[in-house]
Design a protein around this nucleic acid. Structure first.
Lengths: 223, 223
DNA sequence: GCATATTTGTCCGTATGTATA
DNA sequence: CTATACATACGGACAAATATG
């Protein structure tokens, strides 16, 4: 089962079993198969994936560091359930990372990536595919941050968005949340392309304020 | 040995053995006892610290995620030796995190912390204690970032500075590097306290450009 | 280039401590 | 309070990869 695939990829690749297991778990969490707050049993999962508990524990450490899992000492690991305070902090970070990004002179290639993500979102919105809207939206903001041209900031944003996905998974209806922001993304991109960084930054701040408010509003009751 | 201390701290605290071992290793790396590029033997260290290899490997994962250690498959873990490109990226991140910080209206308490760190640096400089200057300098910039009032950004900065310390450890003479920036820190703080955020941000950008240039200049030859 | 020694990657069994029903 | 389930941590084992002579 996993063991053979494991050997193959070790031979021609670079990742250890623990890392590959982490990839699998990250994907499951990201798509919502493992719900926030849910406990992940060492025995159950190690058995299901065909790896030893030691190896699985290494994977848990990795994901814990990404804030997708929470380690409670002697109680096990749980899928993180971010608090309202966490949401507020995530948006503080977004203001910093995205704000700095839109103030920079944008590169041609990055602009194309941003545009593509936005176009995908608009198309998905037309077809009422809100799952796809959310995904494209995330790609849009990831691409915005990549204007900074910093691998570390890209990685930070990637983790931040993964954490934000946890929040979306406990919301009542993520569809209604993402919808109104597609049009705003278009405006934001327009300001960037027009070379008006300060206006773009101000618009973005408003944008994020509004998103944070709506998110916390839809979120708080669920705690 | 460590085992007993371990039990005590578990009882009254929250951290696991792996985390405590990670703390110890982080400290050793930070103070330069483990040099960048050096390989850390699983057997040697697990024996020296009195923990099992499995536990130690969990610690290695933690520090790997903090970019202090590098995992080479089937070859072991090494203390990271950042490349010149890494240094450039670290400074890109600093411009974003510190730039956003100085643009915000500063809180009284945070200002006091910044001031304290700076005063310590000035005092240490007078006494030619360059090690202490470097330490206080790091505290100064950490405090600057804390103006953002974001736990996640504080944590990012903490990790960034730990990584930057690796760079300092392979420099010829870190003393000469830190010295000229103490005076600039005072100017920067003055602009912040005077409520001139844009000037502070511009001054900071210059500051970081100069620091990056000097650092890469003193660093590149060593690769 | 080959044979050998070393080290990592992974797994297993087990003992102990902790949280919870 | 006891019992149970589970995480924590240890030590030993072996194969695979790497380094060494």
């Amino acid at each position: 089962m996993l063991a053979e695939l494991s050997q193959d990829r070790v031979r021609l690749g670079r990742s250890s079993t623990a890392e590959r297991v982490a990839d699998i778990l990250r994907e499951r969490i990201s798509e919502g198969a493992f719900r926030p707050g849910q406990r992940l049993s060492e025995e159950g999962i190690s058995e299901a994936l065909g790896v030893s508990r030691n190896t699985l524990r290494e994977s848990f450490r990795l994901l814990g560091h990404e804030r997708l899992l929470e380690h409670k000492l002697n109680r096990g690991v749980f899928v993180r359930l971010p608090s309202a305070e966490d949401v507020a902090d995530l948006y503080r970070v977004r203001r910093v990372l995205e704000g700095a990004a839109v103030r920079r002179k944008p590169g041609e290639r990055t602009l194309a990536v941003i545009n593509e993500a936005l176009t995908d979102a608009e198309r998905a919105a037309e077809q009422d595919d809100w799952q796809a809207v959310g995904t494209a939206n995330i790609r849009f903001h990831q691409a915005i941050v990549s204007l900074n041209e910093s691998p570390r900031l890209n990685e930070s944003m990637r983790q931040l968005l993964a954490e934000l996905r946890l929040v979306f998974h406990v919301m009542d209806n993520p569809r209604a949340f993402h919808e109104p922001f597609v049009a705003r993304n278009r405006v934001l991109l327009g300001l960037i392309e027009a070379g008006r960084p300060e206006e773009a930054a101000a618009y973005l701040d408003d944008y994020l304020d509004e998103a944070e408010r709506q998110l916390i509003h839809a979120y708080e009751p669920n705690r």
